[in-house]
Design a protein around this nucleic acid. Structure first.
Lengths: 115, 115
DNA sequence: CTGATCTACAACCATATGGTTGTAGATTAG
DNA sequence: CTAATCTACAACCATATGGTTGTAGATCAG
């Protein structure tokens, strides 16, 4: 299992996008419903431009898409990118379990050796 | 479900720690085996101090612990912090599924309404 | 004891990040 | 047509990040 191409700047972007509470909050909103950029902006105590930048970070990470509808841009989640992050953490989980199992085996061997 | 306290700087740190390929690689190494800081540093094309900083980032995120052993510091993973990130993404998954189910229901209603 | 090794930490630098304000282009409402 | 709304983007600023080199304290090997 490869786990991670060292040049995985896609993963860099995905995790970086998650590394901010405002952006995580935006993700939850756009998972649950439809929001334009200005509707999103209304919920945060910062400028429209700042929220626009947060959306841009999510967009660069492919976590969200923008779809023009009239004069507004509707933000929606691209769950595939969320899954990419999930899978990476799941691979850690797999390696972790293998290691724990291996250590358990060693301890079991010990027990057998000195009863 | 709360999903995320907006002041979750712990999550910020965890995801930020994952947002770098070198740090993700370090995590894999210390999951699978025992490494001192200098042993880790030997594997990367950067200074010892740079790797030391990466380890510090992982440490601040509680993803790894350092344990002094003689003159070296052995780095080990704290899997609980990994699980925190996993759980957050799993909650997204839950919300996502609920939303998909809800949309499916609506579509099913439509079908029933116009057969 | 002496020298080599491992670590910590400071100082420094270039660039990225996260915020601001301001300007301008589309689009809609009246 | 005009005014209001939504968006995009540039310019700017303070601070954070990711790298470097250099210095110094512990610890181990011989």
């Amino acid at each position: 299992m490869v786990v991670d191409q060292l040049s995985a700047s896609g993963m860099d972007r995905i995790f970086h996008a998650f590394a901010d509470a405002t952006r995580r909050d935006i993700v939850v909103r756009v998972i649950t419903g439809e929001y334009s950029v200005s509707e999103l902006a209304a919920h945060y105590d910062m400028s429209f431009a700042a929220v626009q930048k947060h959306v841009a970070v999510l967009e660069r990470a492919s976590l969200v898409l923008k779809e023009k509808r009239g004069r507004e841009q509707i933000v929606s989640v691209n769950f595939e990118a969320v899954r990419r992050a999930q899978q990476l953490l799941d691979e850690y989980e797999t390696i972790w379990r293998q290691r724990v199992d291996r250590i358990s085996d060693i301890l079991a061997e010990d027990k057998k050796a000195s009863p």
